[in-house]
Write a protein that binds this DNA or RNA. Structure first.
Length: 486
DNA sequence: CGCAGGTTGAC
DNA sequence: TCAACCTGC
């Protein structure tokens, strides 16, 4: 009897635990299924970029399945109902899938599991998308979920490294689903009601493998060995570029860690080791936020620490629009937002600067920014995005120290984009502005502005807030909120 | 209980 | 130093 393998955010064949187990259990008679779910597609968070990327990954997955003699069965509807239909059409003995940890997914999967059990069918879910599952690591003394990243990561490594030794291969061959089993064509983006105005990366398992291999190719100028420093320079391609692949699972997280662990066994300089260690810690952040939200689901709707929900945001819609469009007058912020709007991606350092600016300088509710990023990013991930925004807002975790965390957009710009290369790439109005003015172009003498054809207020916006004043305003708003909610 | 530490900073 | 808190052992 065949077995259904239900693909969700794991659009690959290599080191896919549910697929591997399904193939073993059925001697290759796997029905590979992806269900387009309107509850996700139209939840107001999912945007054109992530949807486009997902559709392209489905095309690639279907292609790769065909190489193994199979094909992807695509359905569109409510997942439980679609699976019920598929089970009856295929007489499958059960459904296999990799676990997901957000409330919606848990509820959905629990209902599926319950129905399968009632029917006497197999329901097998697998630990796959994270290195350490949310229930897999608790504090020593009280067996409670961790709140502090530092404490979490200390004990994460050993468990994670163990997972990196547990890879499974892609099936070498699959039995084709019955030829009369219906499958929808993979839809075009427009058919789902999306209009993509951004460029998106090329995707698919083969490309994900290529990106991973390149990042770990020590002969390359910007490999993981330089990551610790290169990742802080938005003008350079010093990051792994794997966020979109980790979002939708075109690469396995275990394979990612395995590469790093293997590299650490080679002779490395302290700086090179630092690069690899830093990258591993980024993988730990992913697991950390997954377990933080799993155990504190209210943070999907508000601050982890509810005292921060008392902040009186200004929420000025004109300023929000200026931020969205990259018209704040702060070049590093505008470059970041324009990179996002054009490329459906923003360098992580700039995400932090831009988030801090929206929250602290404009005093706009971090959830507005969170939602905008979700809709624009091709790697949009509720967990990582929510965690990142809460971190920027200082509302996440007990080490929140808003007094320390008001980024100075000018100082950040000078530090991380000293020659303005990144700024000039995305803010062409400033292309000819000399280095000494590129971070704060409003300080240019008027004669120079006229000479360069870059008059502030005409060719490029004047800053919409004064950072010094905005900083004091934010400190007051935070102080007031924390005092009144005692 | 006491104590160390707290991703990414700014002034 | 800011200002002075919470986690986790």
């Amino acid at each position: 009897m065949p077995v259904i393998c239900w693909f969700r955010r794991d659009l690959r064949l290599t080191d896919h635990r549910a697929l591997y187990a399904a193939a073993e259990a059925s001697a290759g008679a796997v029905i590979p299924v992806f269900i387009l779910d309107d509850a996700i597609l139209h939840d107001g968070y999912v945007g054109a970029a992530l949807t486009a990327v997902t559709l392209a990954m489905l095309e690639a997955l279907n292609h790769d399945l065909q190489q193994l003699g199979s094909r992807l069965i695509v359905r569109h509807g409510q997942p439980l109902a679609e699976l019920q239909r598929l089970v009856s059409e295929t007489h499958a003995s059960g459904v296999y899938w990799n676990r997901d940890y957000l409330p919606y997914a848990i509820k959905r999967d629990t209902a599926v599991k319950q129905w399968l059990r009632e029917q006497g069918l197999q329901a097998h879910s697998f630990h796959d998308s994270v290195l350490v599952e949310p229930e897999g690591l608790k504090t020593k003394t009280e067996q409670k979920p961790y709140l502090v990243y530092g404490s979490y990561v200390k004990r994460w490594s050993e468990l994670a490294y163990h997972q990196a030794e547990q890879l499974v291969p892609a099936p070498s061959k699959l039995v084709a689903p019955p030829s009369d089993l219906a499958s929808l064509p993979i839809p075009a983006l427009a058919d789902l009601g999306f209009d993509l105005q951004q460029t998106i990366p090329q995707v698919g398992e083969a490309l994900a493998q290529q990106r991973l291999a390149q990042f770990f190719d020590r002969r390359r100028e910007l490999s993981v060995l330089k990551y610790a420093e290169a990742r802080e320079v938005p003008a350079e391609a010093g990051t792994s570029q794997l966020s979109v692949d980790l979002r939708m699972g075109t690469i396995s997280i275990r394979q990612c860690l395995k590469q790093a662990v293997d590299l650490l066994t080679e002779p490395l300089t302290a700086e090179q080791r630092q690069g690899v260690d830093t990258w591993i810690k980024e993988l730990a952040w992913r697991d950390y936020y997954t377990q933080l939200i799993y155990h504190n689901p209210h943070m999907l709707n508000g601050s982890l620490d509810p005292r921060y929900d008392q902040i009186e945001w200004r929420n000025d819609p004109t300023e929000f629009a200026a931020w969205q469009q990259g018209q704040t007058g702060y070049p590093i912020v505008d470059a970041g937002q324009r990179q996002l709007n054009q490329m459906a991606w923003m360098h992580n350092r700039v995400r932090m600067i831009s988030a801090s600016f929206l929250i602290k300088d404009l005093l706009i509710d971090w959830r507005w920014g969170e939602r905008y990023f979700m809709r624009k990013l091709c790697d949009a991930d509720i967990t990582a995005n929510n965690g990142g925004w809460q971190w920027a807002a200082g509302s996440s975790g007990p080490s929140a120290q808003p007094y320390f965390r008001i980024f100075n957009p000018i100082a950040q710009s000078k530090k991380h984009d000293p020659h303005g290369q990144y700024i000039r790439r995305f803010v062409p109005e400033l292309a000819n502005v000399p280095d000494r003015y590129i971070h704060e172009p409003w300080t240019m003498p008027p004669a120079l502005q006229a000479h360069l054809g870059c008059v502030i207020g005409r060719d490029y916006p004047a800053p919409i807030v004064d950072h010094g004043l905005a900083r004091e305003r934010a400190l007051n708003a935070y102080r007031t909120a924390l005092q009144t909610s005692e």
